[in-house]
């Protein structure tokens, strides 16, 4: 599903943002990407989505190189990010009806079910919603397309406890139902041990760890603790 070998990315001012990132992800797996602020998590996800062009290494997403603008493949990818914004004077219904036109696989009944599950109302104006509620709306739009791959960047940071649980549960359901693959970059590892199959830990653009989740967990079975310990050792 995703193969990355020795990924390199630097800014125009030559500053290295990613240096030697390698990992692979099979269909239906859940990868959690961790790292301190500024570690390069968002840049990595931007490379996966083809929003940035890598300076070195190999990358295949859904068997295609994202650097070549494989636009048809993007119909099979759900993208969630804090950088995805919706016009404030649209309501939920307007956004979803605008969004669904781009996806042949969009499932209206799934959308309705998710609206209920996430407790979002169609008629509420985006400008009146909180940051967390806007993310809920985006999650509904992304999951209703029935993506094969979901790329989520810091999406859980603004969700409340219930919203985060519902989101992770929805991902798990879609993983079970359709073997959806998930890449989630987050600063909140708490509770992810039951969802994530693999862990990628980045620090200052360098790969610290890529491993199966169970191999990282200590005796307490606490992923947040295990990740924090690894970062503190650096």
């Amino acid at each position: 599903m995703i193969v990355a070998r020795d990924l390199q990315y630097r800014l125009r001012n030559k500053r290295k943002i990613l240096n030697g990132i390698s990992f692979n992800l099979n269909k239906g797996e859940f990868l959690a990407v961790f790292g301190e602020n500024g570690a390069g998590k968002t840049t990595l996800l931007d490379l996966l989505m083809g929003f940035r062009r890598r300076n070195g290494g190999e990358l295949q997403v859904l068997d295609m190189d994202p650097g070549t603008d494989p636009w048809r493949a993007r119909a099979r990818i759900g993208y969630l990010s804090e950088k995805v914004d919706i016009p404030g004077d649209w309501d939920g219904k307007e956004f979803l009806s605008f969004h669904r036109r781009f996806y042949d696989t969009y499932d209206l009944s799934r959308e309705t079910a998710l609206m209920e599950q996430f407790n979002v109302r169609y008629e509420e104006r985006v400008g009146n919603l909180s940051a967390g509620e806007i993310r809920r709306l985006q999650i509904i739009g992304a999951l209703a397309t029935g993506p094969e791959l979901l790329v989520a960047d810091e999406i859980t940071a603004v969700l409340d406890i219930i919203g985060r649980r519902k989101f992770l549960k929805a991902l798990q359901e879609q993983q079970k139902e359709r073997a959806m693959t998930v890449v989630l970059a987050t600063n909140i590892p708490e509770g992810l041990e039951t969802y994530a199959d693999k862990i990628l830990l980045i620090s200052r653009g360098r790969q610290i760890l890529f491993s199966e989740t169970r191999a990282v967990l200590d005796d307490n079975n606490d992923l947040a603790d295990a990740v924090a310990k690894r970062l503190e050792r650096l």
Binding site: R74, A75, Y79, S81, V84, D85, I86, Y103, G127
Partner: peptide, 20 residues
Amino acid sequence: PWRTQHQMSRHYLLSLPISH
């Protein structure tokens, strides 16, 4: 994104299944 968050951001547009 430097103007306002309440608009359709470039990230959203670029993630759509349309050739860039």
